[in-house]
């Protein structure tokens, strides 16, 4: 009985001591879970924006007609970041174009890699190492028919108790031949940060 009491006391002491120890722990988390670490543009916002925009694009009747028998060729122009914070907008467009491409309904040309492709073709033709009959030909690439472009803007307001951030993301699809905007949509995100009176 005495032994039990000793063990319990020891255990409790350990628990007490360990309870307040400040140790850092590394864990793997869910990459798609909602993240609310701070009010800045985060992974949840990026994923939400990308998912909503691709869903809206797929559901649009115009896009339904465009993709009925063909897979239109698109290119993504860089998104304009008009917010007050640094946001990697290429990451948003990457997510959107990857989703569109993986759906099997669209094809893409990558303007960011034009120079690299040109260098490779130059090497094949002028390097003297590639059999000319097997070199990939110049001037055979397919041009984009549609351009995706957009804006990301924000309104930030705060007082001593509360911060409110509003993001508006607009995306448009332009027919490059006619110059007509065939589809457009915007998505909004509101985030607030307030002081909690009781924290645990």
């Amino acid at each position: 009985m005495n032994k039990l009491a000793l063990v319990t006391t020891l255990g409790l002491t350990l628990v007490f001591a360990a309870g307040c120890a400040n140790k850092s722990v590394v864990r793997y988390g869910d990459a798609t879970a909602v993240e609310t670490t701070d009010i800045n543009f985060g992974s949840t916002d990026l994923q939400k924006v990308a998912a909503q925009m691709t869903d809206s694009l797929f559901l649009s009747p115009v896009v339904g007609t465009l993709t009925q028998n063909t897979r239109p060729v698109m290119f993504v122009e860089r998104l304009k970041n008009k917010t007050s914070e640094h946001i990697d907008t290429e990451s948003i467009t990457d997510s959107i174009s990857t989703k569109l491409l993986r759906s099997g309904k669209f094809r893409f040309v990558d303007m960011g890699r034009v120079e690299a492709a040109r260098e490779q073709l130059k090497f094949q033709h002028d390097g003297g190492m590639v059999d000319p009959s097997k070199a990939t030909q110049f001037g055979r690439q397919i041009g984009a028919q549609y351009m995706l472009y957009g804006n990301l803007s924000s309104i930030v307001k705060s007082n001593q108790d509360k911060t409110d951030v509003y993001y508006k993301f607009t995306l448009r699809l332009m027919d490059l031949e006619s110059g007509l905007v065939e589809w457009a949509d915007e998505t909004e995100i509101r985030k607030t940060k307030a002081k909690e009176s009781v924290g645990w």
Partner: peptide
Amino acid sequence: GKTPWVPVELHGKQSTTLRGLAPN
């Protein structure tokens, strides 16, 4: 593992419509 968790706030007794669209 690629479909994101979407935040939704439900106020008291509120009902909302959730929409999902298949990726392919």
